[in-house]
Amino acid sequence: MKSRSLLLTGAHRLAILAYVVFALFPLFWLLKVSVTPNDLLYSEGVRMWPSRMTFEHFNFVIAHSAFPTFFKNSLIVSGATAVVVTVLASLSGYALSRFSFRAKYWIVALMLITQMFPLVMLVAPIFKMLSPLGLTNSLTGLVIVYSAFNVPFATFLMQSFFDGIPKDLEEAAMIDGATQFIAFRQIILPLTLPGIAATLGFVFTAAWSELLFALMLISGNDAATFPVGLLTFVSKFSVDFGQMMAAGVLALIPACLFFLLIQRYLVQGLTAGAVKG
C-alpha cells in the first residue's frame, strides 16, 4: 500500500514535470537561439545551450532596426485599448450586475453573438469603413477596432467581479448620502481593483497579440505593431534567426509580465466569464 502510493506520487510529479518542460521548451529555445552567436548557430544546432553567449542580436534589434518603433506602437495601442475597454466594461458590467431593465436580455444576447461570429468576416467592411475616415494606417484606428472586439468579453468579466460584491455596500452608501454613481465610484470600484487589473491585463495581452487586423489595416513601418513588424521582418530577411528570436523575446516580455502579475485573478474571472458564455 505504502509503495503503491509512493509510485502514484512519483508518476504524478513526473507528469507535472513533463507538462512544465513541454510548456517552457519552445520559449527556452527562443531564448537560446537569441543568445547564440551566428558562427555557432549551425555547428551547434541541437545543443541545449551554446558554448558561447552573445547579446549582439539584442543590440542590433534595439539599436539598428525599426523594432523599437514597433514596440512603442504596440505599447501605445495595447495600453490605450486596455484602458478604454476597462472603463467601458466597468460601466456596462456594472449595469448588467446591478440593474434589472428591459433591454438587459438583448444587450447580453448582442454581446454573446459578437463572441460567436468570425471576426475575419469584418476585415473587409472595417477596412472599407475606416479608410475614408483616415483611420487605416493609424494607431487610433487600431485602438477603436480592438476596443470594440474586447468590450463584450471584458463586460462579462467585470460583471462577474461586480456580482461578487454585496449589494448591501451600495445601499449603505446611498443611505449615507451617496448617489448611485458616487457609490459606484467611491465604494464599488475600489473593491473591484483585482477585477480591473485582470481586465486590463487580459485586454492588453489580446491587443498585443492581434495580427490579422493589424496586417490588414496597417501598411508601412511607422504605424506597424510588433506582430506586423516581426512578420514583415521574417518574410524579408528570413535568414537572420538570431535577430528574429531576439525580437521575439522582446515581444514576449510585456505579455508575460502582465500575465504573471494577474494570473491569479484571471483564473477567477475567466472561469466566471467562460461559464456565462
Binding site: P166, D168, L169, E171, A172, A173, M174, I175, D176, G177, A178, T179, I187
Partner: peptide
C-alpha cells in the same frame, strides 16, 4: 432618494466599506 431622507441604517451584514 435614500440620501435625501436623512435616515441611518444598520445592515445584517454590517455592510462596512
Amino acid at each position: 432618494a435614500p440620501k435625501d431622507r436623512d435616515i441611518a441604517m444598520v445592515f445584517q451584514s454590517y455592510a462596512l466599506y
